[in-house]
């Protein structure tokens, strides 16, 4: 019907498949994020790391540079090299989450938009999944995607023998990155749903990590135990990464405890999200 007719008409046309609806949320959220120049600058800066790591992989394989370096090894391309990459990019992912994550959910809650989403054939899980997918996509773009590209680059230069011996590193990059992505997404959404104010939510995300890390350090020093680090989520995820990259020697926490801590943390975030992301809240007395 043309605009000029200005009458109410029912709609009998095609409808999109149910499974694809969460992508609409992701598409609109991405459109808003992509308007931010700061985000684009940050993403470009994030690619400085992979560029440096790619250079470190390439240089030993370049005949001229190898001749120049002689017996001097610039850097060893081993699991620790990729662990270093995942750790560095994990830090960038954390900063990205702190700035981008709260903007995804807080405005909807502040402006009571949830009833508008949830009165449509659309569940809370799909809403969360749609919002998370934007953040997950952004973090993926700076973590496991360049990580696997670097791994592929090294495998291409070093040959099939290296690939056959080290394929598990690719799995560790992928798995380690996704554990971090899920943790960060849950944290960002849960905190935003809790405080509903973008700036406060951003601050709180940083506080959760840094203040808890401070406490962990204080407890460890006072009680002379490494177990205090269980409060430090950086240390928890680092432990899991070290385990995945078979660098167990530098682990400060038992791996079982690290997994358990992460599971509890993610469970708490899930419960918080489940409690706060509702169309309407009621006072139960």
């Amino acid at each position: 019907m043309a605009v000029y007719k200005r009458g109410y008409e029912p709609y009998d046309g095609l409808r999109t498949p149910q499974w694809s609806r969460f992508l609409i949320i992701a598409r609109y959220a991405w459109r808003r994020l992509s308007d931010s120049r700061w985000l684009m600058v940050f993403l470009v800066l994030c690619y400085a790391y992979p560029a440096v790591f790619a250079a470190l992989i390439y240089l030993p394989h370049n005949a001229a540079v190898a001749e120049l370096l002689g017996k001097f090894r610039l850097v060893e391309i081993n699991p620790a090299f990729f662990l270093k990459f995942v750790s560095e990019m994990g830090s960038m992912a954390f900063i990205l989450t702190g700035f981008v994550g709260p903007g995804l959910v807080s405005p909807d809650l502040t402006n009571n938009a949830l009833p508008l989403y949830l009165c449509r054939p659309f569940s809370r899980a799909e809403y969360v999944f749609g919002k998370m997918s934007v953040l997950a996509l952004l973090i993926s773009a700076i973590t496991w995607v360049p990580g696997l590209l670097l791994f592929g680059f090294q495998a291409y230069l070093a040959g099939f023998g290296w690939l056959a011996a080290n394929w598990w590193i690719a799995a560790a990059i992928f798995l380690g990155s996704w554990i971090w992505i899920v943790t960060l997404c849950l944290l960002a959404l849960a905190v935003s749903a809790w405080v509903k104010w973008k700036v406060v939510a951003s601050t709180l995300i940083f506080v959760v990590f840094f203040v808890a890390a401070g406490f962990a350090e204080a407890i460890s020093h006072t009680l002379h135990t490494e177990l205090g680090h269980v409060l430090n989520l950086f240390e928890v995820i680092a432990t899991i990464w070290r385990w995945l990259f078979r660098e167990a020697g530098s682990m400060r926490l038992p791996i079982g405890l690290a997994w358990a801590t992460l599971a509890v943390f993610c469970g708490l975030c899930y419960l918080l999200l489940n409690k706060k992301l509702r169309a309407f809240h009621v006072e139960r007395s």
């Binding site: 149910q18 405005p107 909807d108 502040t110 402006n111 009571n112 938009a113 009833p115 508008l116 009165c119 449509r120 054939p121 659309f122 569940s123």
Partner: peptide
């Protein structure tokens, strides 16, 4: 979900997307 496929809803409170 079938119910929500059929309905339109205008909430009482201020509800919009910023």
């Amino acid at each position: 979900r079938n119910v929500r496929n059929l309905i339109g809803y205008m909430p009482e409170n201020d509800s919009f997307i910023a």
